[in-house]
Amino acid sequence: MKKIFFCLIFPLAIVAQAVAQPAMTKTARGAQYAILKPGNGEKIKIGDVITFQMTQKTDKDSVLGSTYQMGQPAMAQVQPSKNVGDLMDVFSILSVNDSVLIKVPTDSIFAGHDDRRPPFFPKGSFINFLVKIQKTQSLESAMAERNAKMEKERAEKAAMATQLKAAEAATMAKYIADKKLNPQTTPSGLKYVITQASAGKKPKAGDTLLVNYAGRTPDGKLFDSSIAEVAQAAGLQQPGRNYEPFKFVVGNGEVIPGWDEGFLLLNEGSKATLIIPSALGYGERGAGEDIKPYSPLLFDVELIKVIPGKPKPVVKAAPKGKRPVAKKAAAKRTAAKKKVTKQ
C-alpha cells in the first residue's frame, strides 16, 4: 500500500463520504477540485502551516485511509507546488473551514512507474481527497505550539516517572517488611541477602559463571527460571526452554546491571536473594507483559560454578625518560653495529 504514496509529502487519509459529483475546476498541473462547503475563514498564504482532516479514496469510494482513524489531523506547510500529488496548488487558494474535494489523476502520479500501479487505480482513474481545513498559522506560531506541546509532554512524563519511582521505593520497602528481611545495600541501591553462605572462590569481572535462578515481580509472579521444578510449580510456560544452569560472563554487560553487580558479591556455592531496583533492571521501559516500567525485580539465585576468565596481558610501563624500543628494531640496530665493527 505504501508504494502509491511516493509522490505525496504528507500522510494521506480521511473519512469516507458519498458525495454527488460537483463541477470541477482544473489546476495548471492537472488536479481537479471543487469547494463543497466554503468556510469563509482566514485565507491561506504561501508559507502558512495548515492543520486539516483528510480522507483518501478511490473512484469507487473505497477508503484508503483517514486522519480521523489515525486520531489526529495532518499538518503541512503550504509551498509552491512541485508536482500534482502535493496538492499545494489547491491548498494555496483555500480558506479556514473550507471543505474541498480534490481529484489527482493517477496517470500523472504513476507516469514512468506504471509497474507500481495497483489494480484499484487503473489508467484514467483518480485518487480522491476530501479535505477540511481546520487552522492556518505562521511557521513561527506552529513551531512555538509544537515546542510547547513537547515541553508539556516532557513535564507530564517526568511527573509520572517521579510517581512511579516513589511507588517503586514503597513496593521494595513493603516486600522487605513482609518477608522480614534485613538486606545489605550497595551504593547503587542493590539490596541482597545471603541465604546460604559459602567459602568458595569469589568471581571477578571477566569470569564465566554458571547460575540457577528464579525471577519474580514484587507481587510474587514468577516470570523466569532456570529450574524446571520451580517453573512447573508456578505454572510458568517456557516453550523450548532447556532447564539448566545459565551461563554468562560477569561484568561484561551480558545481563542486567543488577546481576553483574550482585553476582560479584557472592562466592561459588552460595545462594542469595537479590532485590534489584529498576535502575539496575529494565528501567523506565520494562520488559514484556510481566515487568512493568520502574518495576523492581526479585531473584533467588545460586552461584554454582566460577570459571576463571583469561587474564589480560600486563604491559610494563617504560622507564621515565626512555622511550620503549621494539625488539625487532633493536635487533636490526645491533646487527648493523656488528657489521660496522667487522669492517
Rank of each mutant, 00 (worst) to 15 (best):
Y175Q: 00
A158F: 04
K135A: 11
S141T: 15
A155D: 10
M172P: 00
I176D: 04
S141Y: 03
M150F: 12
E145M: 09
E151I: 07
T171C: 11
E153L: 14
A170G: 01
N147S: 10
S138H: 04
E151H: 11
T162H: 12
A170P: 03
A169L: 07
R146M: 10
Q163V: 11
T162S: 13
M160T: 08
T171L: 09
R146D: 08
E140W: 06
A158V: 07
L164F: 06
T162D: 15
M150G: 00
A159V: 09
N147G: 01
S138Y: 05
A173C: 01
S138R: 02
N147E: 15
L164P: 04
E145F: 07
A142R: 06
T136D: 04
A167H: 06
K157W: 05
I176V: 12
Q137V: 06
K152L: 13
Q163E: 15
E151R: 12
Y175M: 09
Q137K: 06
E145H: 10
R146T: 08
K157A: 15
K165S: 04
K149W: 07
A169Q: 13
M160H: 09
D178V: 04
A167F: 01
K152S: 13
K149V: 06
A159K: 15
M160V: 02
E140Q: 14
A159C: 06
E168K: 01
A148F: 00
T162N: 11
E153C: 05
M172T: 09
E153Y: 05
S141F: 04
Q137C: 11
A161P: 01
A166V: 03
A148E: 13
S141R: 09
S141I: 01
E145R: 07
K174N: 08
I176A: 02
R154F: 14
D178L: 03
K165T: 07
M150I: 12
R146W: 09
K165M: 11
K157P: 02
A173T: 08
E151K: 14
R154T: 12
E168Q: 10
A158Y: 02
S138D: 06
K135R: 13
